[in-house]
Each structure stands twice: as C-alpha cells, then as structure tokens.
Nucleic acid binder design. Structure first.
Lengths: 218, 218
DNA sequence: CGCGGCATCAACCGTTCGGTTGATGCCTGT
DNA sequence: ACAGGCATCAACCGAACGGTTGATGCCGCG
C-alpha cells in the first residue's frame, strides 16, 4: 500500500511560506540537504499557501508572519488550522513582539521560531512540530515566561481605545470630542495609562504601547 | 602575474553581512550557482565584517542594516567606506523607510536593495555595484525620486533624526541632551517638522512620519 | 452588603510644549 | 558675492499637558 505519512520511511514534507525569495532559497537549501526532510512546495503569501495545501501532501508548514502583499501569516495560519486535515504550522519570522507572538499562538501556530536562529535549532523545531509538539525559540519562550511571571497591569478596553487615538496624534481636546467625554476624564485615563506603562508622557506611552504590541502601527 | 581583480577572469568575490543564517544560506546558494560570482566570506555583524575585510579580498559587500547584536549595518558601512581600499557596499535589507535609506546612502552605500527582490534583480545589482555603479531597488528609487520631485517638502537629515528620537518618547529637554543642542534649537526643528508634515503637535508628527515611512517603528 | 475596579467629572497648579520673532554662522549653488 | 537652505541659539507668551485631590455612579465578586 502507498504510504501517505512520512513515518512510513519517507522524508518530512515541508511547505515554505515566505515572501522573500532569498529566505525561501536558504530554507530550501537547509532542508533539502538533509536525509529526513524535504521542501515540497513554496508560497509567497497566504493564498498561495492555501492553494498549495489543496494540491500537495504536507507534513509541516513553515510560515512567515509579515508578507508584503497578499494574505498575511496570521490569517493564513488561522485558516489552515481550521481545516480538518490541518498540518502543524510552525511560525518562522523576524519579529518577537508580544503582539505577533500572541496573535500567532491564538491563530493556532504549533511553534514560533525566529529567523536568526541557527539552522540546527530550526531543524529540531521542524521535527518537533511534525510530531505535534510545541517548539518555541528561546527568546520567545523567555518572553512568554516573563509575561506570566510579572503580568503587566492589564489596560482596560477604554484605555486601549484611547491609546489608539493617541497614536493618531489627537490632542486631549480632540480625544474628548471623539469619545464624547470631558477633557478631565481624558486626563484621568491618561494618568492611568502612564502609570500602567511606566512612562510619564503621551509620546512615551505610544512608544511603549507599540513596543509591547498593545497597539499596532497602521 | 597574479590577478588581484576579478576582472582578470575570476569570479566576483562577495562578502555577506547578515545576522540571519537562513538569509546568508539563501544568498550563498544564489550566487555560488552562478559562473561569475561567489561568496568568499560571511559575517553576522559589523565587527566580523571588518575583520573579514582584513583577511580576504572582496569585490562587493552585501550588507544588512538591522542586526540583532553587534555593530549595526550603517556604522559598518561607514567604517568600511572610510578605508582606503574600500570595496563597494550594497545594502540589502527588508525596510525601505526614508530614515534607513538616507542613513545608508549618507554612510557611503553604493546601492540599496530590498530582500523581497527577485534573485535576478539582486544579481544585476551586485554586478552593478562591483562596477562602482549605483543600484537601487525600484521602490527605493521611486521614493528618492518622489523626494526630489518634492511634492511635499523634504525633511532634512537632522529633522528625521529628531523624529526618530521623538517617536521613542523623548521630551524636548531629553532631545536637547541627546543631541547636545539647546532646547531652543529642538523647538525650532520641531516647528519646521510640524510645518513640513502639516501637523501641529509631536504625536501627530510621529503618526504622519510613520505613515509616510519617514521613520520606522522599532 | 461592601469592596474594588472602572469610567466619569471638577478644580487647581506647575511644567512642558507650541508659535513667534529675531539673530548668527556655515555651506551650496548661481 | 549674494541668496537661500540648514543648524544653532535666545526671549517671550499663551495653550496644552502632567499630576494631584476629591467626588460620583456603575458594575461584578465574594
């Protein structure tokens, strides 16, 4: 009988999803030189990845998060994970912001690795992902641990809403009009935000919020 | 007689500087398969690149700008360009913000390419750089042209530098200390920035600058 | 029920920021 | 040589912001 799974002796079948030809090239070279892995397909964005999954049998998907054009990595990961025959998706990206990591995990990623990882580590992660295990880059793991250990005071929905408008450059007066509240209230919210973020002015608050992925640049 | 230059029939000798092993791998594969180019060395940051230049003969340096640890690409480019026997430095990076481009050009880069470029284009750029010609990615060229055509007032390098610090949340006082200028000067710069961006406060300036790619979120 | 967190508002005050005017020195290009 | 852009600084004033105190009402939780 024909072996549908790699466990029957075949090599691990990998699908690369990354908009950078150079990166795909490097990954392909890395995996194809191994006995136990091979790249069976490449995609430059989410749509292509989905199309590929319909046509080919894949054991692991290596997914970049930010792609210049087309469907981004997070929604692609989510869409893939919702399929009945979903292969594990290992995220491989350059960024390790809270926002990216949390979004990826929430979307169903099996692991999260960074592109500056040594090839060795990367291959281990792919193998782990294929077994259904979770593979996290040390940096990422550390960040998640730190988050659990010292849970930063959570911002309320209202505060995040205000941060979003703040980052668009609104003044306190404009903020108050936008939200139908008084300037006094705006200032109170800001004080709370500064407090929770450990800063002392609005620009630093924006910077901190962007850095921690509480809001994202448009 | 021994041929010191690639023009004597040898292949173009390339030094890769990038902190991502995967990217180096991809580039190496790309160039080494060609008849007329070869990667003679790799470096993971600026220091390594400089050390390598002392030991090997290099025709072109392919330089990433943002490197996780160690000397960053801009200062590495500047340091290399100041050498008497400086090879041309072709910047190859992911980002195309005004800030990055200007910094690289000012540091002496011969060209500026983006990592999502097709391999074909990349090789042409390397060849051009080796001949001492300027090679710019289409996006980058367009951006520079737009600056020259100057539909919108162009920001000076100093103003962009200030914008970058602004976006990190520095106050006028902190800015003045950071840049070794008086607060009065900072305020003057800010007025000019607001003027050119068509805004009227610092947070709006940050927002506008991010949106137009003048600066890049870290 | 009472406690705490959240959202709302007010008044006050000191600091920072925004805007203006004016001035100097340095380049660059005409 | 001169104009014009850039970077630098100063003094000034009104407006916006940051910080505090205190207060009200609403909600969920134990």
């Amino acid at each position: 009988m024909t072996a549908m799974s790699h466990e029957a002796g075949g090599r691990l079948r990998i699908l690369l999803v990354d908009d950078h030809p150079v990166v795909r090239r490097g990954l392909r070279a890395m995996f194809d030189e191994r006995e136990d892995m091979e790249v069976v397909a490449e995609a430059a964005d989410g749509q292509e990845a989905l199309a590929t999954l319909d046509a080919a049998t894949v054991d692991v998907v290596l997914m970049d998060l930010r792609m210049g054009h087309g469907m981004d990595g997070v929604t692609a990961t989510r869409t893939i994970s919702e399929r009945p025959d979903a292969p594990p998706v290992l995220v491989l990206t350059t960024y390790d912001s809270d926002a990216d990591i949390l979004a990826a995990v929430e979307a169903g990623a099996t692991g999260y690795m960074l592109k500056d990882a040594p090839p060795e580590q990367l291959c281990q992660a792919v193998a782990a992902a294929a077994r259904g295990e979770t593979a996290l880059a040390p940096n990422v793991a550390a960040r998640l641990m730190g988050r659990l250990r010292s849970p930063q005071p959570a911002l309320s929905a209202r505060e995040i809403e205000i941060l979003g408008l703040l980052a668009r450059g609104l003044s306190n007066r404009a903020l108050s009009r936008e939200l139908f509240i008084s300037e006094a209230t705006v200032k109170t919210h800001l004080v709370h935000i500064y407090d929770k973020l450990g800063v002392d002015n609005r620009t630093a608050a924006i910077s901190a919020a962007l850095e921690r992925g509480i809001i994202r640049p448009r």
